[in-house]
């Protein structure tokens, strides 16, 4: 389909806000049909990186390409599914109306597509409920439904499972896996490590830079540890209590 063109390709991406270097030179190439975990603490630049890749923020330096096309390009947008970190749904519209609205903007007008994602996110029996009356976790699911409805080949999901109950979370991951098997590229940003093992590859970021990239096993092995939290600290150059290893205590 896209041949050997990478699904996502970032070259030297930098974004500064005043003196804050939110993204500080990220090079990243993601291949088709895999699930990538973008992991790092709050404020490490995950959201800013994703927004630049989606064409929603102008990079201070560097370029991003999706499916070989330079971002920003409006024709690309129908082929991206972007789920923002904050639920961006219309509170006064019902669940179904929200999904149908985004489906129409993406050029999907069949009710079947809407029903499919409502089933997937387990919102079928809430279709008539105004979004403002949903719980936080349900709004999160609605936001995901709006992102998936047009079945794009590239998914950029910013903390998609926050506040979603474990059983449903497992369903989500099963669905992500099916999508990836069918060729969809998925980038999932998260600040918690507990879902990392579900990803094919992990990218650890801190202070706007990539610390390490690899499979979960590779990263743990190279850090000489069995859990990812410790591996993160190791790759960030911190000791087990979060203090810089090189710092001289006085």
């Amino acid at each position: 389909m896209t041949g050997s063109v990478p699904a996502v390709e970032a070259v030297g991406l930098v974004k500064t806000f005043g003196s804050v270097r939110a993204v500080d030179g990220i090079d990243l190439t993601l291949g088709a049909g895999r699930i990538y975990g973008l992991l790092g603490p709050n404020g490490s630049g995950k959201t800013t990186f994703i927004r630049m890749v989606a064409g929603l923020a102008h990079p201070t330096a560097g370029t991003a390409r999706i499916l070989g096309t330079l971002v920003p390009d409006r024709s690309l947008l129908a082929r991206i599914g972007y789920m923002p970190q904050v639920e961006a749904v219309y509170p006064e519209l019902s669940v179904e109306e929200n999904v149908a609205f985004f489906a129409r903007l993406e050029g999907r007008r069949d009710p079947a597509a809407v029903n499919r994602v409502l089933d997937l996110t387990d919102l079928g029996d809430r279709r008539g409920t105004p979004a403002m009356h949903l719980s936080g976790g349900m709004r999160r699911r609605l936001s995901l439904a709006c992102t998936l409805v047009h079945e794009p080949p590239v998914l950029l999901l910013d903390e998609p499972t926050v506040g979603v109950d474990p059983a449903l979370r497992a369903q989500f991951w099963a669905h992500f896996r099916r999508l990836a098997d069918a060729g969809t590229t998925i980038l999932v940003a998260s600040h918690v490590m507990d879902e990392a093992d579900r990803c094919d590859e992990l990218v650890f970021v801190r202070s706007g830079r990539i610390l390490v990239r690899g499979t979960s096993a590779e990263i743990r092995t190279s850090a000489g540890t069995t859990d990812l939290e410790s591996a993160f600290l190791h790759h960030a150059g911190l000791d087990s209590e979060g203090r810089p290893l090189t710092a001289v205590s006085s």
């Binding site: 409006r74 947008l77 972007y82 904050v86 639920e87 961006a88 749904v89 903007l105 993406e106």
Partner: peptide, 14 residues
Amino acid sequence: VGGTLERLLATPVS
């Protein structure tokens, strides 16, 4: 301020 504008701009709408 609610983020829906940014969400809109992530769709092909002009």
